[in-house]
Amino acid sequence: MSPELIGAVYILSAILFVYGLKLLSSPATAVRGNQLSSLGMLVAVVVTLGSREIIDFRWIAVAAVLGTIVGAVAAQRVAMTGMPEMVALFNGSGGIASLLVGWAALDMGGATDAELPQTTFTIVTILISILIGGVTFSGSIIAWGKLSETMPSRAISLPGQQFISLLLLVAMIGCGAMMVAQPETWNSTLIYVVIVLSLILGVMAVIPIGGADMPVVISLLNSYSGLAACAAGLAINNTILIVAGSLVGAAGIILTNIMCKAMNRSLSHVLFSGFTAAKTAT
């Protein structure tokens, strides 16, 4: 299939996503909205499989079948009361997928010498998708742990948490700057550092928040996973990833805000509750 045709079908699936989200926000039409949105996803996947770029289907088939089985079984087995945890786990797997896409995109320039060296823009978007994807993944796992009480659900505050988080972020920006400055020298080594730092940052972001606020946190992380997909789309130059990702990113933020209002709390209060608790304790 030609890239133009694929682009046109991507527009169709974006319309289905938008319309699906619209229907999902009203009780009478919600089921239909979800179906429309899943149809959009199916259309996007099928047309992508038909693109000329894809020449080897073996690994795709194995990975897709395994993923479908795991996702379907998990979705069927989960108890109704365990839904928020399940959504957290699914969200985490979406986050790590974006991280892996970013990582693979970084590697694909290095593997084939014929390709042009990666531009600063590509490296920056790759780093953003790894950062947000990693934070989404580890944050979602912590949120799942707190909700399912596999770990203590109270707010855990470590000494100097704010400082550690800031340090992590600075270290990550430093690594990013080095990778942008000298991609050939630093890409292959510093990428691991960036991945590890982003995973730790996700833990640091969610661990000081109490279990009762977790639904809001999951909604926020959902928004992050959308932004991660959007960054991955910018890195590999794929429009449907950018459109759908930023749509989820924006919808997630506004939904987070609405949920906060429904619980009578402010977003900043939820996010920094652990920090303020630590402050009053000292």
Partner: peptide
């Protein structure tokens, strides 16, 4: 539902 859409990755 929005989370499922972010699986567009």
């Amino acid at each position: 539902g929005a989370n499922a859409i972010s699986g567009i990755t």
